[in-house]
C-alpha cells in the first residue's frame, strides 16, 4: 500500500479513513473501557478470563495517562477544543498531552501551524489557558 509510506502524523497524513474517523482522548477511552469492564463483571464471575490482553493493557494505559478523570471535565475539554477548528486527531493530541506553552503545543502538533490555517499564537495560548482551567477546577 503506497499510502503507508507517506503517513506522517505531524503533517496530519494519517489516511482518509482515520482522518474522518472519530478520535478518542485517553480519558474518553478510559470511560468507555471502564463501562465495558463493569458490564462484563455483571455477566460473569471472573471477567479477567473474558478480556483480551489488548483490552487489559489499554485499560491500564489510559487510566495511567488520563489527564481528566471526571466525565463532565472530559466533555468540557472536547467542547473547548472543538471551538478551535482543529482536526479530530489534533484535538486528541492536545487533550492527551496538555501542553503548557504555545511553543510546546506547536511542537506536539506541528500541523496546527501549516499554511492556510488561522491559528496565531494568541489563539493557541487562550485555548491552553482554558484547558488548564478545567484541570484546576476538576
Amino acid at each position: 500500500m503506497s499510502g503507508e509510506e507517506e503517513e506522517n502524523a505531524a503533517e496530519l497524513k494519517i489516511g482518509d479513513e482515520f482522518l474522518k474517523a472519530k478520535c478518542l482522548m485517553n480519558c474518553e477511552v478510559a470511560l468507555i473501557l471502564d463501562h465495558k469492564y463493569e458490564q462484563l463483571q455483571q455477566m460473569s464471575e471472573d471477567p479477567m478470563n473474558q478480556i483480551s490482553q489488548v483490552f487489559e493493557k489499554s485499560l491500564q494505559y489510559v487510566k495511567r495517562f488520563s489527564r481528566y478523570k471526571n466525565p463532565d471535565a472530559v466533555r468540557q475539554v472536547r467542547e473547548i477544543l472543538s471551538r478551535h477548528q482543529l482536526a479530530e486527531f489534533e484535538l486528541c493530541v492536545l487533550g492527551n498531552l496538555c501542553p503548557e506553552t504555545v511553543e510546546e503545543a506547536i511542537a506536539m502538533v506541528p500541523s496546527i501551524k501549516t499554511k492556510g490555517r488561522t491559528h496565531d499564537d494568541e489563539a493557541i495560548e487562550k485555548m491552553l489557558n482554558d484547558l488548564s482551567l478545567i484541570k484546576k477546577f476538576e
Partner: peptide
C-alpha cells in the same frame, strides 16, 4: 502513526536503548 507524539511506560532498559509500552 509515524510522527505521532504520545506518552509511554518504560518496560525494559539495556545498553542498546529501552523498550516502552503505550497500551497494546
Amino acid at each position: 502513526f509515524k510522527g505521532e507524539i504520545l506518552e509511554a511506560v518504560v518496560t525494559m532498559v539495556n545498553k542498546m536503548g529501552f523498550f516502552a509500552e503505550a497500551g497494546p
